[in-house]
């Protein structure tokens, strides 16, 4: 669906994106993660046809974005981080404008406007001037604009930036609904919890280079082959740190009160044996289990731990 082939973009002496080679299949929700300045926005802007690559090629649904921009853009819905809307238009007029700009036939446009307004929950504001909307509402209107023409691909650049927690939750629910409708989404963010449970694939960018890309499940399992993090809790006084220190395949132990975390590099059987050993040593275990890896954990493992 989205193909980046040897994509490169330079700004003067700075190589913002270096020889990117990624393919995102249909229906995938691809999270582009990395610190500020990693090249995420540049990639999305090139994918939209807003920036010309210095070298390389991008195709969306098989259409070369820079050779046939208008055709490619009919498949794309784009939303950036901070943006304005035309305050002097009404909500429906704004969507009507973009529907026409995407050359939707009149017969489809009117019902689609109502459908999209309903989808983003702006029914009561349909005939209101945009200048009266809150920031969160404007962001929802932005999403409505991006999907008015039923694009196959959504390119979202830090869509949750500057939103309050309620608006972020709304946005997340909206994106989940779009995902369930089968849209292919490329979303960039440096607020990683926003992408949790939403992305099916991730790509980690560092200094313009894609350091790791793949399905979240695959990367998690690959990383899990190396080690896992185990959380445990217990009651009563017990020499837990001492027992763990003497155990095989255990490292990075962190104990706070009656809770602890440690890194374990052994097999599942060895982990079960360790639990048994703790109990046999008189530790009254309340809970013991592997910590599920979040995208943030994965990112921290994969990246160079730059300041987010």
């Amino acid at each position: 669906m989205i193909e980046f082939q040897n994509l490169r973009r330079e700004y003067g002496d700075l190589v913002a994106v270096r020889d990117l080679q990624v393919s995102i299949p249909e229906g995938e929700v691809y999270g582009l993660i990395g610190p500020n300045g990693a090249g995420k926005t540049t990639i999305i802007r090139m994918a939209c046809g807003l920036l010309t690559p210095t070298a390389g090629r991008i195709t969306i649904s098989g259409v070369d974005v820079h050779r046939h921009p208008e055709l490619a853009q009919s498949h794309i819905g784009y939303l950036s981080d901070f943006f304005s809307v035309y305050d002097d238009l009404k909500v429906w007029e704004y969507l009507d404008y973009f529907g026409r700009a995407y050359k939707m036939p009149d017969s489809q446009l009117r019902p689609r406007i109502d459908e999209v307004i309903q989808q983003v929950g702006l029914e009561v504001k349909r005939d209101s001037l945009i200048r009266g909307l809150s920031r969160g509402m404007k962001q929802r209107l932005g999403i409505a604009r991006a999907i008015i023409h039923k694009p196959k691909v959504l390119l979202l650049d830090e869509p949750a930036s500057g939103l309050d927690p309620k608006a972020r939750a709304d946005l997340r629910n909206l994106l989940l609904a779009l995902r369930s409708e089968g849209a292919t989404v490329l979303i960039s963010s440096h607020i990683l919890p926003d992408l949790e449970g939403f992305c099916t694939s991730i790509g980690v960018m560092e200094k313009g280079v894609m350091v790791r890309t793949g399905r979240v499940a695959d990367i998690s399992s690959q990383e899990a082959q190396h080690f896992c993090v185990v959380r445990l809790s217990w009651v009563g006084e017990a020499p837990v740190e001492q027992i763990l220190s003497s155990a095989n395949a255990v490292s990075d132990i962190a104990i706070r009160g009656y809770e602890g975390l440690f890194r374990f590099t052994g097999s599942d059987d060895e982990l079960a044996a360790l639990l048994q050993h703790l109990i046999s040593q008189g530790v009254r275990i309340l809970s013991f289990g592997e910590v599920k890896q979040t995208i943030e954990d994965l990112y921290l493992k994969l990246s160079l731990n730059e300041v987010m």
Binding site: Y78, Y86, A101, Y102, K103
Partner: peptide
Amino acid sequence: SLKTFDFLRTTRLT
């Protein structure tokens, strides 16, 4: 400066 022009550029308007 309002960052609205990018949206126009990504439409099918020639």
